[in-house]
């Protein structure tokens, strides 16, 4: 009887997981931990909001072609919340392919690489870029990525030019970047949904709600229960 549980149709587990993740979306349960960020997009949104809240100038670059849509989505909405103007308070640069060359060049003269913003204007003509030529003119850089790009930022920008760096990565990558945090090569690190939620919570900026963390908590709870039950069954069938 117990052994049948170990051979359970995996589709039943998929169905359970679907229910567990879907229920909090439809009806949030308000389990502990502040607000929520679904992924790196929400991390980026929270960071942009924080920058605008502190009246900092923001420059956005990307080495992932697919991120251009996400950047547009964020900057269509967030600047309006803080009455920020394009060109005066923030600037968006177009996609560039070779991150190692771009990151190295930005340590000397970023206009050699970015001679146009995303609308084709020379960035030197924008008020937001006044006094900015290389990393040494910037307060810090934050790399939000679902890829291994943060490695490149640490190597080519942070370490090489002593440029303070923060990172926002997926939960999968977070343990791998822990050593950079410990050595001070990164000044801060957000990891996945949980990191985004903690950041929003610290800022006191309202996020999307609590459904994401509810779903994650329930999902983890289900995995832990399944692991425990399976192990107990194995022990019982083997030793009793």
């Amino acid at each position: 009887m117990l052994e049948k549980f170990l051979k359970i149709d995996r589709r039943i587990i998929f169905l359970l997981l679907t229910l567990v993740l879907f229920i909090p979306i439809v009806k949030p349960l308000n389990l502990p931990i502040g607000a929520v960020s679904v992924d790196t997009k929400k991390q980026a949104t929270a960071i942009v909001r924080h920058c605008f809240k502190k009246d900092l100038r923001v420059g956005v670059i990307t080495f992932i072609a697919g991120a251009t849509g996400l950047i547009e989505e964020i900057f269509e909405k967030v600047p309006q919340e803080y009455r920020k103007e394009y060109g005066k308070d923030y600037v968006i640069f177009p996609y560039q392919a070779d991150y190692s060359a771009v990151l190295t060049q930005m340590g000397f003269d970023l206009y050699q690489i970015y001679d146009k913003d995303k609308f084709g204007t020379h960035p030197k003509n924008l008020p937001v870029m006044q006094g900015i030529k290389s990393y040494k003119d910037m307060g810090m850089g934050i790399c939000i990525t679902g890829t291994a790009l943060l490695d490149g930022w640490v190597a080519f920008a942070g370490d090489k030019f002593k440029f303070p760096l923060g990172g926002g990565v997926t939960a999968v990558s977070q343990p791998g970047y822990g050593p950079y945090l410990q050595t001070g090569q990164l000044v801060g690190l957000l990891g996945g949904m949980k990191g985004g939620a903690e950041y929003e919570s610290l800022l006191g900026i309202p996020g999307k709600g609590t459904s994401g963390i509810d779903a994650l908590n329930l999902g983890h709870f289900m995995v832990v229960i399944l692991i425990l039950i399976s192990n107990i069954i194995i022990i019982v069938t083997r030793y009793f």
Binding site: F22, V26, V38, V172, Q174, M193, L216, G219, H220
Partner: peptide, 22 residues
């Protein structure tokens, strides 16, 4: 720790799709 984070990462991706479906 790495596997736990991997599970969390996959769940958050799945959550993202479910959120869109909703």
């Amino acid at each position: 720790a790495a596997f736990g984070n991997t599970v969390m990462g996959r769940f958050s991706l799945l959550y993202g799709r479910f959120d869109d479906l909703y």
